[in-house]
Amino acid sequence: MSNVKDKFLTISMIAILLLIVWGMFLGVLYLMSVFVIPLTTSPNEPLLLSVYRIGTALLILVVWIIGWHRLATFWLYRVLKKGGGHEGSERNDSPS
């Protein structure tokens, strides 16, 4: 029974994390479309402005990724600290 409760809690937490990441993604897209992507592209746009646009877009994306990675790390280690996870055998999975 506790296994069912644990599974439910884990799924719920990851679903909440997913909702947060989704919300952040929509925010990132909004910021990028307002501040980074021009409404109309002028053929005479200065090079510096183009560099600024691409640089800002990359910065926003990196902040987004670091944001949810930190959030996930914080959540995972909190759960593991509370007693989740098990020391086990040497066999393991491959991440790619």
Partner: peptide, 20 residues
């Protein structure tokens, strides 16, 4: 089950197996 070591990479499977 999730590897409790901080040196292990974070993956979705590790997160799913963190509680049990």
């Amino acid at each position: 089950s999730a590897n409790p070591s901080k040196k292990a990479p974070i993956t979705l499977v590790r997160m799913l197996t963190s509680r049990c």
